[in-house]
Design a binder for these strands. Sequence first.
DNA 1: TAGATTGTTAATCGATTAACAATC
DNA 2: TAGATTGTTAATCGATTAACAATC
Lengths: 216, 216
Amino acid sequence: MRHKKGISDAVIERLPLYYRDLLLLRDAGIDIISSERLGERLGITPEQIRKDLTCFGAFGKKGVGYYVSELCQQIVEIIGLQQHWKIGIAGIGHLGWALANYKTFERLGFRTMGLFDVDHRIIGQNVGGITVTSSVDMGKIIREQQIQIGIITTPASVAQQVADDMVAAGIKGILTFAPLRLNVPNNIFVFREDLSIGLSRISYYLTNYSDKTDTF
Amino acid sequence: MRHKKGISDAVIERLPLYYRDLLLLRDAGIDIISSERLGERLGITPEQIRKDLTCFGAFGKKGVGYYVSELCQQIVEIIGLQQHWKIGIAGIGHLGWALANYKTFERLGFRTMGLFDVDHRIIGQNVGGITVTSSVDMGKIIREQQIQIGIITTPASVAQQVADDMVAAGIKGILTFAPLRLNVPNNIFVFREDLSIGLSRISYYLTNYSDKTDTF
DNA sequence: TAGATTGTTAATCGATTAACAATC
DNA sequence: TAGATTGTTAATCGATTAACAATC
C-alpha cells in the first residue's frame, strides 16, 4: 500500500466515514459494495470515493466493486487504527464523561486508559470502567500507561497548562475542545473540535437562505 | 451589507472563529485590530481574513484596521445571531447535558428552550435551568416555545425518528451528533458533527508523518 | 506628507467532476 | 462475450495566495 505524503486533509476526513459505513455493511453480511452504492448511502459521489481510495492503492475489482472486509482492513491500515491508540481525557465534566463512554471510539480501536480532573468530587469515581485520577498525577499515568493521544475537555482557562503537561509527559497528538489556539512544539499534532461552529452555520443558512426550496 | 448567495462554506466556518476572537478583544478593551494581528492570533493569513470579510462588504479602514465593536456587529448580522435562535436538545445523556450547559452557545445568542429524553430517571430533572421533558411532549413544546433549531444527541437508532418529529413540529435546522445520514425534507438544514473524525485524523497523521520535524 | 493597511484584481494552487480505457 | 465497475487521465471548478492600487 502506498503512503504518499501530501494527501489532502479533505480525503483524510472522508476515510473514517467510509470505514464506519463499511463496518455496518460487514455486520449486515454484505460482502461486496460498489462506489455507486456506497456513495448513495453516504451522500458522496462515487467518483470522489474512487479518487480518494486510489490515493493509497487499487483496492477494488473492475466490473465487480470493493470487497467490504478487505477494504475495511485497508482503511484500518491507512488510518493507522490497527495500533489501538491509547488515549487520556483531561477534564471529566459532562463532555469528558460523554467521550469516555463514546462507543464509536472503542469501535475504531481507541482505548481510554486515563481520565483526569481537578475536582475532588469526581476524582475516584468510575467512569466507563476507568477510575478518574487527579490531574496532579496525569503525567505519571500518561508515562506508565504509555498514552499517546490526549483529549482536552477542560475549561479554556486551563487548556494550555494541560496541553503543556501532556506534551511534557510524552503525548504525541491532542484533540482539544477548548475554543482557543494551543501553543505546542511543532512535532505535536493538535486538532481542534469546535462545537459551536455547527450551530453558527445553521444560523447563517437559515438567515440567508431561509426558503431553501427557492435557492436549491 | 451584501448578502451574496453562493458564499463558500469554508468562509462561513471561519466567521464564528473571527467573531469569538473579536469578542475576546472587545472584552480586553481593544478597539482596533488589523487583519495581520487577528491572523496571528487565529493562525489564519491576513489575506484570507480580508478576502472573507469582503464577501459581505468593506468593514475596515484603510491604513487603520478594523474597529472591533463594529466588526463584531457586522458579523453578528452576517451570521444572523441577532435573532437569538431558540434551540431544543433531544437526548440528555452526558453529551446533551454538556451542550445544555455550553456557555459558548449562550455567548453566541442561542437560547436553550427545551430538553427532551425518554428516560424517566432524567425527565423532570433541572439541567442548566431547564426542566427535562418527556420526548412524547417534544412536538408540543417545540411549537409552544417556537423552537427553530434542534440538536440530536440520542443514540443513532432513534435519531431518524427524533428528526422526523422535530421536522413535523416545525423545526428548520438540525445539528446532529448521530453518526448516520438523516433523511429530511430538503427545506430543512442538517449539519452533522462527528466527534470521531478528529481522533481518526490524529491517528492518520501520527501513523504517516510520525516524525513531524522531518516532513514539515 | 509618509507609513500603514485595506479591498480588489490577477495568478496560483488544489480539489472535484467528467470521461473513458482497462478489465473483471 | 456482454455488462458492470474500477482506476486514471483530462477538464473544470473553486479556493487560497500574491500583488498592488486606493486611501486613511
